[in-house]
């Protein structure tokens, strides 16, 4: 298979794609083995979903100044924060193993494709991106693409979509799940 791939000038990109596909499946398999199937994770996950739904309905229902409502809201928020924290702790275990797998795969790809243009960019990236897309390449053609950038694109798109597809994506309700978690100003 490898021989026929090299008939394409940039056949290496297909090799990198298949290696990152395989490593994404291995990483999710490990995470499933170590966390997602454990009862502790499942109960945590359902608490988070339930609490964030209750919090949601509490927030969208008519805002009233009743003391009990604000107290209930605070209780939900603290329980949401606690279970989110426990959730991230439980992910710590497999995080290490997954990181090792990614480092090994990156080292393998690095040794295979160091200093080689593995793809051709159909655009000229901004200098910031060029640092990654032209890393370790000789010459100054900005549309040459190094393994680092291509592997970054592969792992980002494949892993996040695979996690979403398998239902392992972090719950939306989890505190700080958003890109820039807006700190909740505590009402005094």
């Amino acid at each position: 298979m490898v021989f026929s791939l090299s008939s394409f000038r940039y056949g290496d990109s297909l090799i990198i794609l298949s290696i990152s596909l395989a490593s994404a499946f291995v990483c999710e398999g490990i995470s499933w083995l170590l966390i997602y199937r454990t009862p502790n994770y499942k109960s945590l996950r359902s608490t988070i979903d339930r609490t964030s739904k209750k919090l949601e309905t509490l927030k969208t229902s008519a805002p009233s100044t009743k003391k009990s409502k604000t107290k209930k809201k605070d209780r939900f928020e603290t329980s949401l924060k606690e279970s989110s924290r426990d959730l991230s702790f439980s992910k710590f275990k497999s995080g290490g193993v997954v990181a090792i797998v990614l480092i090994i795969v990156f080292g393998l790809l690095n040794s295979l494709f160091e200093g080689k243009a593995v793809a051709k960019l159909p655009f000229t990236p901004i200098p910031f991106i060029q640092k990654m897309s032209h890393r370790g390449l000789s010459g100054d053609d900005p549309t040459d693409c190094a393994m680092v950038f291509f592997y970054f694109l592969c792992s980002m798109s494949i892993r996040s979509n695979l996690q979403k597809f398998l239902g392992f994506a972090p719950p939306r309700g989890a505190a700080g799940a958003g890109l820039f978690p807006v700190p909740d100003t505590k009402s005094s």
Binding site: R9, A119, K120
Partner: peptide, 25 residues
């Protein structure tokens, strides 16, 4: 509108670069 934005950008770039590199060189 932010839902799945980052993953879609990386997926788009990956598909674009891959098809462009493989079929036009």
């Amino acid at each position: 509108l932010q839902e799945g934005m980052f993953a879609s950008i990386t997926l788009f770039l990956l598909a674009w670069i891959l098809v462009y590199s493989i079929f036009h060189f």
